[in-house]
Design a binder for these strands. Structure first.
Length: 421
DNA sequence: TCTGGGGTCCTAGGACCC
DNA sequence: TCTGGGGTCCTAGGACCC
C-alpha cells in the first residue's frame, strides 16, 4: 500500500506555524523576486486567484481583502521540510522524499489498517511540526496521488483519504479529468481529449497499444497504475543529479559587465556547492544571459554558451574563472539584462574523474581540502560565512524580497520569543 | 516598475563500429 | 529477383514533475 503525504499549502503553512495571527486570513507566498504567486491559502484560492499569477497584476485584489503577502523564505521552508520528513521517517518503514512538501511511504504489512496508519502519519507530522498534511492511500503511487487530491477537496475526511476497493476507484476516476492524473500534462490531456478520452476512467480503459504509441512507455505505466498495477517504484535514496542549475532573475535590469560578473560568479559558486554536496565533479558548464522578454519594446538579446572543462572539477575558483571567460565571449553592451544562470553537465563521481595529461592545473588534495573547509564552515556557522570576493559584496543586482519573514528555525536572532506573565 | 527556479525521462534518426 | 546482423553514441525535440 502506498501513502502519499502531502503538506497543505506548504509555504503558507510554514509562515502560519510561527505567526498564528495568519489563521483564517488569505495568505500568499511569492516566487523569487516577488514575481508570481506560488502558494495560496484556501482563503486566497477562494478569492479566485490562480496559482502562478504575477504579483503586480493581483496586488490590488490582495490588498482589498486584507491578504498577508510573503516573499519566499526558502531557508525556512527547507528547514521545515526537513522536520516533516524526519517526523515521517520516525514511523515509516520505507519512504521516498518526492519534493519539498511531499513524501511517499510504503507499508507492506497485511496486518496494518491503511486508514489507521495514514492517520498515525498525519498525526505525527501535525504534532511534531505544526504543518497540516493530507494522506492519500491506494495500491499505486498514481492512485495515492489521486486519493490525496480528493482528500484535500473533502474536509470531512479529516486529512486521510483511502482509495481501496475497485468500485470507489472507478467512481473517483470517472469524476476526474484525465489531465488531472499524475503524469498527464497539458499536451497529453489535449491529445486524449481529441481521441475521445476525457475522464480518467476512460484513460484506464484505453487500448494499450494506442497508449504505448501515443504516450510512450511512460504513459502506459500511468495507465497500468490506474488499473492498480504498481509500475512506479519507491526510490528511497535520491539518485545523484545529472545536471545542476543555478540561476536567478535580477532585482532590477543590469547593464554593467562588472555586475554581471558578480552574478555569474555567485551562480557558479552556488552550483559548485551543490556539486560537492553529492560528491561529484562536472565536465562541462553552460552560461546563459538574457534580457527581459516581457518588455517587448526593449532590444532583446539572449545567448547561451557551453564549454567543456579541460578536466572535470568541483573547484569553485576554476568554475568562476571559466564562467568569466564565457561571459566575455557572449556579453554585448547596451542591453538591459534581466537574468543569468550557470548549468553544470557531464556530472560524475569525483573519484571517477579522468586526469588530463595536457592540463596544466590539476585539482589537488589541497584544493579539495580547501573547498571542504569552506563548505563545512558555511554549513556550521551559517551561509556565506566565507565566500569568494568575485561574488560581490553589496550585490545590488540581487533579488527583491521586500516581504520576507524571519528564519525562525535557523537563525539565532530570529528565534521567536515567548513571554509568560 | 513589476512576470520563478529547479529537475527527469523517452524517442527517432543519423552516424559510426565490427 | 536477391545486398547481414548486431551494436553504441549523440542530438534535438517533446513530454512530464514540483
Amino acid at each position: 500500500v502506498y501513502y502519499l503525504v502531502d503538506c497543505n499549502n506548504f509555504y503558507v503553512s510554514c509562515e502560519r506555524v510561527f505567526n498564528p495571527a495568519l489563521a483564517g486570513r488569505p495568505v500568499v507566498v511569492l516566487s523569487n523576486n516577488d514575481g508570481n504567486l506560488v502558494a495560496l491559502s484556501n482563503e486566497a484560492k477562494e478569492l479566485g486567484l490562480p496559482f502562478g499569477a504575477p504579483y503586480f497584476k493581483v496586488k490590488d485584489i490582495l490588498l482589498k481583502h486584507g491578504a498577508a503577502v510573503f516573499s519566499s523564505n526558502y531557508t525556512l521552508y527547507g528547514d521545515m521540510s526537513r522536520r516533516v520528513m524526519e517526523s515521517l521517517a520516525s514511523i515509516a518503514p520505507e519512504m521516498e522524499i518526492y519534493s519539498i512538501d511531499e513524501a511517499f511511504v510504503r507499508l507492506r504489512s497485511r496486518n496494518a489498517d491503511p486508514f489507521e496508519f495514514g492517520a498515525a502519519l498525519r498525526e505525527r507530522v501535525v504534532r511534531w511540526t505544526g504543518i497540516p498534511v493530507t494522506v492519500g492511500i491506494a495500491a499505486t503511487k498514481t492512485l495515492a496521488k489521486l486519493a490525496s487530491r480528493l482528500g484535500k477537496k473533502d474536509p470531512s475526511c479529516g486529512g486521510v483519504s483511502v482509495l481501496a476497493d475497485d468500485g470507489r476507484v472507478k467512481e473517483a476516476l470517472a469524476a476526474c479529468d484525465a489531465g488531472d492524473i499524475w503524469g498527464v500534462g497539458r499536451a497529453y490531456a489535449e491529445k486524449l481529449r481529441k481521441n475521445g478520452i476525457r475522464d480518467a476512467l476512460a484513460l484506464r480503459e484505453a487500448d494499450d497499444a494506442w497508449v504505448r504509441r501515443n504516450m510512450t512507455i511512460v504513459g502506459l505505466r500511468t495507465v497500468y497504475e490506474l488499473r492498480g498495477v504498481s509500475c512506479i517504484s519507491l526510490d528511497e535514496l535520491p539518485p545523484p543529479k545529472k545536471a545542476i542549475v543555478s540561476s536567478r532573475s535580477f532585482g532590477r535590469p543590469v547593464e554593467a559587465v562588472s555586475e554581471l560578473r558578480e552574478a555569474v560568479a555567485f551562480y557558479a559558486a552556488r552550483a559548485a556547492v551543490k556539486l560537492r554536496r553529492q560528491g561529484s565533479v562536472a565536465g562541462s558548464i553552460t552560461l546563459f544571459i538574457s534580457t527581459n522578454r516581457f518588455r517587448e519594446n526593449d532590444p532583446q538579446y539572449s545567448k547561451a554558451v557551453t564549454w567543456r572543462l579541460p578536466e572535470a572539477t568541483s573547484y569553485t575558483p576554476r568554475l568562476i574563472e571559466c564562467a568569466f571567460k564565457m561571459l566575455d565571449s557572449i556579453y554585448r553592451p547596451g542591453f538591459r539584462y534581466k537574468k543569468a544562470g550557470i548549468m553544470l553537465y557531464e556530472i560524475i563521481p569525483a573519484a571517477d574523474a579522468q586526469i588530463n595529461l595536457f592540463c596544466s592545473f590539476h585539482d589537488s588534495e589541497k584544493t579539495s581540502r580547501l573547498m571542504d573547509t569552506v563548505d563545512r564552515l558555511n554549513s556550521s556557522m551559517g551561509r556565506e560565512t566565507l565566500y569568494f570576493a568575485a561574488q560581490g559584496v553589496s550585490r545590488e543586482w540581487g533579488m527583491r524580497r521586500g516581504m520576507l519573514s524571519r528564519c525562525y528555525t535557523t537563525k539565532w536572532k530570529d528565534i521567536p520569543e515567548v513571554h509568560a506573565r
